[in-house]
Nucleic acid binder design. Sequence first.
DNA 1: TAAGATTGATCGGTCAATCTTG
DNA 2: CAAGATTGACCGATCAATCTTA
Lengths: 166, 166
Amino acid sequence: VQEVPAGSQEVRWLEPLELDAWRSFQVLQARLNAELARDLSTCSDLSYPDYVVLVALTDRPGAQMRVQELAGRLGWEKSRASHQVTRMVSRGLVYKCPCRADRRGALVAVTEQGRRAIRDAAPSHVSAVRRLFIDLLSRDQLVQLRDISTALLGHIGAPEGCCDGP
Amino acid sequence: VQEVPAGSQEVRWLEPLELDAWRSFQVLQARLNAELARDLSTCSDLSYPDYVVLVALTDRPGAQMRVQELAGRLGWEKSRASHQVTRMVSRGLVYKCPCRADRRGALVAVTEQGRRAIRDAAPSHVSAVRRLFIDLLSRDQLVQLRDISTALLGHIGAPEGCCDGP
DNA sequence: TAAGATTGATCGGTCAATCTTG
DNA sequence: CAAGATTGACCGATCAATCTTA
């Protein structure tokens, strides 16, 4: 991040504070995700993406949702959501049923096995989130982090092939 | 994250502030990485992992490093680093030479093409980091974020199959 | 035996192309 | 044609097993 380009000299390279903030943020999220994914797959039969999808679905009365809305809520690309749902169907965690209102679409719904899986996995996962993240931060820091995250998200559009969440 | 488990009632679920902070942080890092990766691959022939590896290597005099040290510095698993280096060798960005001091190890070094690639890609990438991250935050927020990240990293160990960075 | 590193299988994610219905 | 969704090819990441040298 500090090589000097040949012709164009107009680049504002990162200052030490900026570089520190950026690099530590990057390493943090990589490590955090790796740790939580590992934790989840040793304590349950769910992958991290599986977990996130099940939470989004069970968050909602009826526990079913359009593929595209799922993508929007998770900030995922639509094809990513589609592939993930396909894998989860093959694992018996969700099922798809055609949408009567709009026959182009499909509804994704949680199976009984899916309900059981998320219910069993949640306590251990939440503990891990507390242990690695929440409980290490002060109330002030949580507020700061929330504000920073939501501010930044406001300036980043939705993914390419994706509708916006409601 | 709010299903109530059958037997064990001792789980401390997340409060609203905690949930907000956690979810927004998660969506942020997912979106940010996706955006930067996309940006990089449209403006250059480097993937995001390629870029990170080249930065780590060119950061150091001689621009070469052991595979394991590379993994340590990036917070990666050793096999991840190995696979990545293999791919980069096939793209002509780096090369491996046997390490005379310890013949078990291999040194990874940047090729001329690798130097050119990182030099060409850096300005556009740094601009994107500024546009999506740095320039949207106040100095205070940068400090807070750096402090939060480093504090959390201090409580998360290194990845499983990986040595610690120096 | 342990340390440095690689390999192969498998899962996850992205892109571009495609299919079907509105 | 546009919108909802799927598919296939390809790159990335992880885990467990393996190979070589200390």
